[in-house]
C-alpha cells in the first residue's frame, strides 16, 4: 500500500470507472458489498444528510457476484489493490463469494458482518461471535488471499467479535461499520428513510469508531483498520494513535473525490513536525501515553 487511506465499502464503488478515479490517490479500494444475487435495495429515500453526518439505508443494492465480474475485469489495471467486500447469509455463501472475488483478482476480501439495515445479512449475522468464527474459518479455508472482517459497533462489547474473528484466522479487522440510527420527519411524522432505521456515518460517529479501535487494540494482535467519521487529517492521526494501522473513509468523499491526497499531505506534515518517519511509529501511541 502506498499510503494508509482505503476507500470504504459502499461509497463510490459500484462502478469500476468511479473506483478507478478514487484509486488514483488511495492506498487500496474496497468494493461495494456484493452478495449472491442481484438486489435493487430499498426505495428512495435511502439517504438523509444532516449537520453531523449521513443516515443511510440503501439495502445493499448490488449486481450480484456473477455480474460484478465485469466490473472486476475493468479494475485489473487499478493502481491500488482492490479489496472485494462480500455479504452472505451463512458460511457457505461467504465462502463461495470469497472464492469468486479471488478468481476475479481481488487482493483481499472484506467480510461485511456489519451492515445495520438489511434483514438476514450483515449485522444480523455479525453480532453472534460463534457465527463470526464459523464464517471466517470457512472463508479462510476457501481462499489464499487475506481476509478482513468488518465489525459492527452495534453490540455491547465489540472486542468479543474482534477476538472471535482473530481466533478464526482473520488477517485484519475493520472497525466500524455504520451506527444504527433514526431521524424523524416532523411534517410526515415518520422515519426519514423508507427502511425506518438506518446506519449513521460521518463526523458524528468519529468518537464511537475511535473508542472501538482503542478497545480492540488492547486485545488483538492482528492489524486494525480504523473507519468511521474521518473528515480531516487530524482524524486520521487519531485513528492511528488509537491503534489503527490504516483507515477507511467513506462519507467525507462525497464533497471531495481527491480527499485522500489532501489528507496525505496533512498527515505527512504532522509526522515531520513531530519527528516521525513511518506511519507505524504513530500507531497505538495513545495506549502508551496515559
Amino acid at each position: 500500500m502506498k499510503n494508509p487511506f482505503i476507500l470504504a465499502s459502499g461509497i463510490l464503488d459500484t462502478y469500476a470507472e468511479t473506483m478507478l478515479r478514487v484509486a488514483e490517490d488511495a492506498g487500496a479500494v474496497v468494493t461495494k458489498s456484493i452478495g449472491m444475487e442481484e438486489r435493487k435495495g430499498y426505495e428512495n429515500p435511502v439517504i438523509f444528510e444532516f449537520e453531523h453526518g449521513v443516515l443511510n439505508a440503501m439495502g445493499l443494492p448490488n449486481p450480484g457476484i456473477e455480474r460484478f465480474g465485469e466490473e472486476m475485469k475493468k479494475l485489473r489495471g487499478c493502481r491500488a489493490p482492490v479489496i472485494g467486500s462480500i455479504f452472505g447469509k451463512n458460511e457457505k455463501e461467504f465462502a463461495h463469494l470469497a472464492e469468486r472475488m479471488e478468481e476475479y483478482g481481488a487482493a483481499a476480501v472484506e467480510l461485511n458482518l456489519s451492515c445495520p439495515h438489511a434483514s438476514g445479512y450483515g449485522m444480523e449475522v455479525g453480532r453472534d461471535p460463534a457465527l463470526v468464527k464459523a464464517i471466517v474459518r470457512a472463508v479462510k479455508e476457501a481462499v489464499q488471499i487475506p481476509v478482513f472482517v468488518k465489525l459492527t459497533p452495534n453490540v455491547s462489547d465489540i472486542t468479543v467479535l474482534g477476538m472471535a474473528a482473530e481466533e478464526a484466522g482473520a488477517d485484519a479487522v475493520v472497525a466500524i461499520n455504520t451506527v444504527r440510527g433514526l431521524r424523524i420527519d416532523l411534517e410526515f411524522k415518520r422515519s426519514v428513510l423508507t427502511a425506518g432505521i438506518g446506519g449513521y456515518s460521518g463526523p458524528g460517529i468519529l468518537p464511537i469508531g475511535l473508542r472501538c479501535v482503542f478497545e480492540l487494540k488492547k486485545v488483538l494482535r492482528v492489524p486494525i483498520v480504523g473507519c468511521g467519521g474521518i473528515t480531516t487529517w487530524e482524524n486520521v492521526i487519531e485513528y492511528l494513535m488509537a491503534g489503527a494501522s490504516a483507515v477507511e473513509i467513506g462519507t467525507a468523499l462525497r464533497n471531495d473525490v481527491r480527499l485522500f491526497k489532501n489528507l496525505g499531505r496533512g498527515v505527512k506534515q504532522y509526522m515531520k513536525r513531530k519527528g516521525y518517519e513511518r506511519v507505524e511509529e504513530v500507531v497505538a501511541l495513545a495506549h502508551q501515553n496515559r
Partner: peptide, 21 residues
C-alpha cells in the same frame, strides 16, 4: 438513477462521473 443525490452512492455514475455532482 438517483438515490443519494449528494455524490455518495455511485448509483447515478456513468463513465466515472457522478451525474448528481
Amino acid at each position: 438513477l438517483m438515490k443519494c443525490g449528494i455524490g455518495l452512492c455511485d448509483s447515478c455514475s456513468i463513465l466515472g462521473y457522478r451525474v448528481c455532482r
